[in-house]
Design a protein around this nucleic acid. Structure first.
Length: 705
DNA sequence: CATTTTGACGCT
DNA sequence: AGCGTCAAA
């Protein structure tokens, strides 16, 4: 599963590592550091992630240990983030792309597959892509002595296949091509899963690694899931999966089929219950979100064992380091993607010695984010002090000297969230609302926006007198603001793609959004967003002179494209909502509400059956589901109620989503389509089942079946 | 108190 | 807003 992004990034810095057992370690002072990526050569020796460097040397003495770059005294993952961006910029070319992690994406290739099926179906291809022939097709019986590639070719090109499988076959070709493109342009290899929805594609992507792709034909879903250990499914690898096993005796996904949706809801809540019921049938309505950029940025560090921080001054020092990194990344995001973060969050973990509630968690605190390293640091420190006071309660003890005997901080992190694009759209929906008094004020300067985004300092500004008042006069080494990027020289990377081809068999023609076949690809990366505003992580960091060449060097193969793309979409916006919600001419960014806020506009609850409808991959199950409506109802069922904008702006606009003709959506520009589709998607329902604390409800008394 | 450093999302 | 869960390298 772990794809080898980190390792390949290091390998292209040191090509000599090729073919050698290698691991990437974070730090190395203590027991040789912690392994976070292990090459396949090293795995043969039993080297595993989470081992210590020294431990890996015991089982594989010749192992090469490469260190994660360190900046400001902490691990610096920026080279890996950038490498992920490279791959995203390629994989996002053929369809909607969702950055799922630093090295995974989902692609919805429905449109591309349908186009291919209509215009150049596999059966007419004279030359079949070799890479596509290497696909693994689940359920394909290649045991009868036939050559695997030949049977794959037959499957891919079958003329009499179910349309859904034909679309998957097209997806397999498209993905094979994308993977080759990634290899050619970046030297990363990818693995991929191709299926009708995200969860199946994710599952398949891990089945043949590295650098291979796996197709899940529609007809193989049931057999695949029947015997699949429940914990292999994404989201079931943790406590929920444990509970299913120990409380319900569910060991495979197939075992889940015995339980009614109501039963599962009763146990796990309305949303999780329905989700489980669907998952058991290979159904997932989870859509591929068109998002190439992260929703938050964070910087953190642990201080294990004796390294625990025991003075405010040391906390202040590390907050400075962390905030500097965070600020730098925020500035980069602003410059490259024209996005502003609105919330600063501080997390820490701490221990208290012998206190009744010494296990109390250190509280998290947040406040409005003000740009600038110094401001971020100041606010983070205030948040920390407020949290520390709360953590210690009325606990008042005397300090002796700068040290304290009562508490220690074992981890610190700062993060920035609520990141929204700067309103500066020209390619937005403005033109469709010609003459509408938009607030967009596209000319608003970044500085203005930032100013407006910055006001409120956190509360709890009082210095923490009971504990340690010594106002920091920190003189830690290396405190100066040095922006440092590890440089990557040549290129050659590796990755993984999970690809899906998701179709929705039961919603046929009435509803466009539902009618689609969705194919997706899970893979690594981030960066240039085709549909959203000028977000483009991969651009050279133009505002840091001296750094640009570094970044440019590290991604030579797509700079040209990036530059070209940038010229086209420098000024755009992603959100349609501001035109409705934010009529205030000042258009202050705090009030600028983005897509997330659509959640505030609640739709009436949907019946479970409606949610179940989407992306049903198990045809055979449909007849068993009385609650499911016939396909003709799908269009109506899926639109989920009224969307009322006037609450937000006191204006006069109000739409009933039921009244939107789905075919109209396709007329909209892609970036707007995304948002509209998000509106009409089924909403999560409020959980009316009363339960205890979040995890406790997993362990309620069992009454089976 | 030695796996670390991320990141997304759900619940209340 | 704050907490918890899950996942990935």
């Amino acid at each position: 599963m772990p794809s080898l992004l980190y390792f390949i990034v290091e390998q292209r810095k040191q090509p000599d590592l090729r073919g050698l057992p290698t691991a990437v370690v974070q730090y190395n002072a203590w027991k040789g550091g912690a392994l976070i990526a292990v090459s396949y050569e090293a795995r043969k020796y039993g080297v595993k992630r989470s081992m210590r460097g020294a431990e890996s040397k015991q089982v594989c003495p010749q192992i090469q240990l490469v260190q994660v770059p360190v900046a400001r005294g902490k691990a610096d993952l920026s080279t890996y983030r950038n490498a992920g961006s490279e791959v995203v910029s390629i994989l996002s070319r053929k369809g909607r792309c969702e950055r799922a992690s630093i090295d995974e994406v989902y692609l919805d290739l429905t449109d591309a597959a349908e186009t291919m099926l209509a215009e150049a179906p596999p059966e007419i291809l004279e030359v079949i892509d070799e890479e596509a022939l290497k696909s693994h097709v689940l359920g394909l019986n290649s045991e009868d002595g036939s050559d695997a590639k030949e049977s794959v070719r037959k499957w891919l090109c079958r003329n009499d296949a179910d349309r859904r499988d034909k679309l998957l076959a097209c997806g397999a070709f498209i993905v094979a091509e994308l993977r080759l493109q990634v290899l050619k342009e970046t030297e990363f290899t990818c693995s991929a899963g191709i299926a009708h929805n995200k969860i199946l594609a994710k599952l398949a992507s891990g089945m043949n690694k590295p650098a291979q792709q796996t197709v899940v034909p529609f007809s193989s879903v049931k057999v695949l899931l029947d015997s699949l250990p429940i914990k292999k499914m994404k989201q079931l690898g943790g406590k929920l999966g444990d509970s299913l096993q120990s409380d319900l005796g569910v060991n495979t996904v197939g075992d889940l089929l015995q339980f009614s949706e109501e039963k599962l809801q009763e146990r796990y809540g309305i949303n999780t219950g329905t989700w489980l019921w669907n998952i058991a049938r290979g159904i997932s309505g989870d859509e591929v979100e068109g998002r190439l950029l992260p929703k938050s940025h964070g910087s953190g560090k642990t201080f294990p064992g004796p390294q625990a921080l025991k003075t405010i001054a040391s906390v202040q020092h590390w907050l400075h380091e962390l905030c500097e990194e965070l600020s730098e990344r925020l500035q980069l995001d602003l410059d490259q993607n024209k996005r502003i973060a609105h919330t600063l969050v501080l997390h820490a973990t701490a221990y208290k010695v012998s206190d009744s509630d010494s296990h109390k968690k250190f509280p998290s605190k947040s406040c409005p984010l003000r740009y600038g390293t110094a401001k971020i640091q100041e606010d983070a420190l205030s948040l920390f002090q407020a949290a520390l006071r709360e953590y210690l309660g009325s606990y008042t003890a005397k300090m002796q000297g700068s040290q304290n005997n009562h508490w220690g901080i074992t981890s610190l992190s700062v993060s920035a969230s609520k990141i929204v694009p700067i309103p500066s759209g020209t390619a937005s929906i403005t033109k469709y609302f010609h003459g509408h008094p938009s607030c967009s004020s596209t000319k608003q300067s970044q500085n203005n926006l930032i100013e407006e985004a910055t006001p409120v300092p956190p509360s709890g500004n009082e210095s923490y007198s009971e504990v340690n008042v010594t106002k920091p006069q920190i003189e830690f080494p290396g405190e100066e603001t040095m922006i440092k990027y590890a440089e990557t020289s040549s290129d050659q990377l590796e990755d993984k793609i999970d690809l899906l081809n998701d179709q929705n068999p039961c919603c046929s023609s009435t509803n466009q959004a539902c009618d689609e076949f969705t194919q997706e690809t899970v893979l690594v990366s981030t960066s240039g967003n085709e549909h959203c505003s000028g977000m483009n992580q991969s651009q050279p960091m133009k505002n840091y002179s001296g750094e640009e060449s570094c970044v440019t060097l590290s991604m030579p193969s797509f700079n040209r494209q990036e530059q070209k793309r940038k010229a086209v979409k420098d000024k755009r916006t992603c959100s349609i909502l501001r035109f409705f919600k934010n009529q205030d001419p000042s258009c202050a960014p705090q009030k600028l509400e983005h897509v997330e806020n659509t959640e505030d506009v609640k739709a009436p609850p949907l019946s479970p059956g409606i949610q179940s409808r989407s992306n049903n991959c198990l045809d055979q199950n449909r007849s068993e589901l009385p609650k499911e409506r016939p396909p003709e109802d799908a269009g109506d069922s899926n639109v989920c109620g009224s969307f009322q904008i006037e609450h937000r702006r006191g204006g006069a606009w109000s739409y009933n989503i039921d009244e939107i003709d789905p075919s109209v959506i396709d007329e909209l520009p892609p970036e707007i389509q995304q948002e509209v589709r998000a509106w009409i998607r089924p909403h999560k329902r409020h959980n009316t089942v009363k339960r205890g604390s979040s995890i406790a409800h997993y362990f309620l008394p069992t009454k089976n079946t």
